[in-house]
Design a protein around this nucleic acid. Structure first.
Lengths: 242, 242
DNA sequence: AAAAGCGTTCGACCATGCCGAAAGCTAGTA
DNA sequence: TACTAGCTTTCGGCATGGTCGAACGCTTTT
């Protein structure tokens, strides 16, 4: 772990927390001398990862971050293979559909139907169906101190062995009040690489059996295209927590 | 400029060029020892900026890049203020509308109407109307060796003083054959921060005068919301190249 | 006019990242 | 099965390059 690179990435993480920050704010947030942070930030600015506002001198994220994220999406086989399937799934079920990948103890939405507006949003893994699936298969790392998002959030997530058995996870208003979710894993030949889920208003919950079947079929089909031989995927080498 | 941070960002740039690369490929592309690159890459992996495929050992961009790009968009006042205006502009003109910001010698699309699918794409500044606007006002840096995209690409871009006078730039099949563009600058109180443009099939070119007027009005309105007092914006402190 | 608060620059110390070489690892081959 | 070749990964010593404190210039406030 290279110290200065790690610090640079932590600067970006700090900049994610607010629209704009002063050099001093970043420095105190990281427990470093302002001059130390200045060198790092200048390097980030030179690559467009950070921009400095001309008048105020404050720093914010830069357009190079957007380019990186876009290239990431373009190179993601999961997204390419899932796109036609989730459009069809959204049509068949009338639900909003999301595809997500693990990012530490969060999930990131990489594709959505019928509208792609949710692409890029981040949700704590323990609070959504997509995340429960990825936790169950060890693709997401559990947080030691999970955050309660709504009054319904279950801490810590239960029934992960059941998720592994059935290949499905549910969530009832744990992330957003009024929203429920159902999700299933997507795997390649040797690992769970993401999850596909339905999101519906609480009034439409529970979903009818055909929706369950349609989701299962979609997850299986996408997994097969990515090289998986069985579905639901095997439980990997994870030691199951109760 | 911190050396190791700079190298880390160059690793990300190398990873943008191909779907996946081996450690050795990255090392030779950067002229460094593989072990040197390994330490950098490991740090990037620990933050999710890069992921290593489990089976092949190859590296690719990671989901943290998408999160960063999404936060960048959410925090961009230009995007927030432009969104309603460009939707209306797309309705009025029937054209595709794009909003872009400068990134060195490229432009990055940060908003688009009627469909947002183009958000995130990168275009060389010298080859598109959006980029010519940003070059004219010094927001983009000219490349020393601009790349010819189509047979129509003008190298180097001409008529930049005229762009500053009129506040409009045009492009006829210089970036993509069959596509033409018209663009206008958007400014804050003290700098040109982006450009708004129309993109139309070559068959619809030249655009009728009402489209010119609608674009001008939109660019002026958004600039005003961002704090600009005059439009077209003053030519800054740039020394105009003939 | 004075002062406080910022970002920025500079210089010296020494911690830290860099590289060469050797070690694991997987896959392909006789 | 044993061997080879290619890769990623680990390890250790050298010196390069990053870190921090202090001083500077600037803008804004009182």
């Amino acid at each position: 772990m290279i110290q200065s690179v790690d610090r640079a990435l932590r600067v970006l993480a700090v900049l994610q927390g607010a629209r704009r920050r002063s050099l001093g704010e970043i420095a105190t947030a990281m427990g470093l001398a302002p001059s130390t942070v200045h060198g790092i930030v200048r390097t980030l600015v030179s690559h467009g990862m950070v921009v400095q506002e001309r008048d105020s001198g404050l720093y914010r994220l830069g357009p190079a971050t957007l380019r990186l994220g876009n290239v990431y999406l373009d190179n993601l086989e999961l997204r390419a293979h899932a796109q036609p399937w989730i459009s069809a799934l959204a049509d068949r079920t009338g639900c909003a559909v999301r595809v997500a990948v693990p990012l530490a103890d969060d999930v990131v939405v990489v594709a959505a139907a019928p509208t792609p507006v949710e692409v890029g949003i981040v949700i704590p893994a323990h609070a959504c169906a997509l995340g429960k699936v990825l936790l169950a298969y060890g693709a997401c790392t559990p947080t030691d101190r999970p955050r309660r998002m709504t009054g319904e959030t279950q801490l810590p997530p239960r029934d992960l062995p059941a998720v592994r058995r059935t290949g499905l996870a549910t969530e009832v208003e744990e992330a957003v009040l009024g929203e429920c979710g159902l999700a299933a894993p997507v795997a390649t030949a040797d690992e769970v690489c993401g999850a596909i889920g339905l999101v519906v208003p609480a009034g439409d919950w529970p979903l009818p059996p055909p929706a369950f079947d349609a989701l299962r079929q979609t997850a299986r089909a996408v997994s097969r295209e990515l090289g998986a031989s069985t579905w639901p995927p095997a439980a990997e080498d994870e030691a199951a927590s109760a």
